[in-house]
């Protein structure tokens, strides 16, 4: 076998092994997904999603809380990205005169 043919054979073999492994992995993922469906994808989840009728007060409350949480997260992210968020910055500074004055008073120095 010439050097060129040997090289081509090895390359083909390598590609074959890589794609076979990928195929096995995809198969495994599909099997696992079928065995353990995500919440909402299983029967009970589907039933819940397909259920008709108005959402209960509890559901509305949950949705409202969720929306508020998402709102806060978006706001925080926006502040971070724009460099506006300076939470905790004051804790990095030494205590101020106001505090020292209070401590002096406690220690009877005033």
């Amino acid at each position: 076998m010439s050097e060129l043919a040997q090289g081509l054979t090895l390359s083909a073999l390598g590609i074959l092994i890589t794609f076979s492994a990928l195929g096995i992995l995809i198969g495994l993922i599909l099997v696992l997904k079928a065995l353990f469906p995500l919440r909402g994808e299983g029967d009970s989840g589907r039933k819940a999603l397909n259920a008709s009728g108005p959402a209960s007060a509890l559901d509305r409350d949950r949705l409202r809380k969720k929306a508020a949480g998402v709102g806060v997260a978006v706001l925080v992210n926006r502040m971070r990205q724009s460099g506006e968020g300076n939470l905790g910055e004051l804790l990095e500074e030494p205590v101020g005169d106001w505090w020292k004055k209070g401590i002096d008073r406690v220690h009877g120095k005033e």
């Binding site: 939470l87 804790l91 101020g96 505090w99 209070g102």
Partner: peptide, 10 residues
Amino acid sequence: LELLKNKQGS
């Protein structure tokens, strides 16, 4: 904590 950092107790 930031707000109360320099709190003076009486």
